[in-house]
Amino acid sequence: MLEPLEATRVIARPAALDAVRVSPGTLLMRLALDDALVIGGDVQVDDPFAIVVPDSGWVAWRFGEDQLREALVRLCAFEIHAGLNQGMVAGLPAKIWIDGDRSLVIVAAAYAAEFEERFR
């Protein structure tokens, strides 16, 4: 279930990130106005000062949405909505992507072992 993510991290002007379009099948998670995590595809951004780097520091677990929501009731204290949710899950910083059968939980690879133990 656990999979290392080969992602691209893009830090750029918010307006430049707003204008980014990714191909179908590529997942772009907007972590902050100036910050995106792109999974499964390339990204071009119009900002000469942008930081665009391969980022292998994340791992993900794939779930069906219902299964994930049920598990999260025990593990996090905030309300989950469709798309990106960032916050404390089982005491760890995590990102939750809710999109039906393509739902994901993402944590830093450095927390992978600890998260797996807590998630059960």
């Binding site: 005491g91 760890l92 830093a108 927390y111």
Partner: peptide, 14 residues
């Protein structure tokens, strides 16, 4: 209930 111990990170070389 619901409280977790502080997590510890592991480097890739753990």
């Amino acid at each position: 209930a619901g409280y977790d111990l502080p997590p510890f990170r592991r480097t890739a070389l753990h």
